[in-house]
């Protein structure tokens, strides 16, 4: 057997083993996330805004298509679709006949918020590190990643994002910002 073929075989074996049998590293997790071409899930979210006497709940579905398409469709209590694709972000609320579209390049304050979720799903560590200080560690069965904005002006609006996951799945996103604390729970669709 030539050395070339041997290397190929070893490589094939390496890919055949499940990604999480090895120890959970940031790079390994990112690679695993990057290998997911598409996924869909349901979510339930709770926003705790300090000025409000009760949290605001919402539920809906999430769908992801690599490399950069994310859709958050809220079905309760209002129908709203937030769609991100490349540089464009669109927000639609059919009930009010409202449609907003903006360029993420043009919105340096919004972009980091989008990338926290999108680049994590894409396993794009380089982009995450462009906006965040990333810390990572195993937590329970899975892993926990904390994102702290690098820019001071962003930190005024968004203090930190905590992402909990297991293997190549994101399970919980907790965002602390100037609109309080938002907890997003994600359940993979069957």
């Amino acid at each position: 057997m030539s050395s070339c073929a041997k290397a190929a075989l070893l490589l094939a074996l390496a890919f055949a083993t499940p990604a999480f049998s090895a120890e959970t590293t940031l790079e390994g997790t990112m690679r695993a996330l990057a290998a997911v071409p598409r996924s869909s899930a349901t979510f339930s979210e709770e926003k705790s805004i300090p000025e409000l006497s009760m949290p605001l709940p919402s539920t809906g579905t999430l769908s992801w298509t690599a490399p950069d398409q994310l859709e958050k469709h809220t079905t309760y209590p209002i129908d709203e679709t937030l769609r991100v694709r490349g540089d464009r972000l669109t927000l639609e609320r059919p009930a009010q006949n409202m449609r907003r579209e903006l360029s993420l390049d043009e919105s340096p304050e919004i972009r980091p918020m989008v990338e926290a979720i999108r680049s994590t799903l894409a396993g794009d560590l380089a982009t995450l590190r462009k906006y965040y200080d990333v810390s990572f560690g195993p937590a329970g069965e899975g892993w926990h990643m904390r994102l702290v904005p690098l820019s001071i002006s962003i930190r005024a609006a968004l203090q930190q994002v905590d992402i909990h996951g297991h293997a190549a799945a994101v399970q919980r996103v907790e965002t602390r910002g100037n609109d309080g604390i938002t907890r997003l729970l994600i359940t993979p669709a069957p």
Partner: peptide, 17 residues
């Protein structure tokens, strides 16, 4: 309040109150 429920809530929380 309606806006706070939406995905645009960070912006509204910042200026709305």
């Amino acid at each position: 309040l309606d806006g706070l429920r939406s995905a645009a809530s960070p912006l509204l929380a910042r200026f709305g109150f």
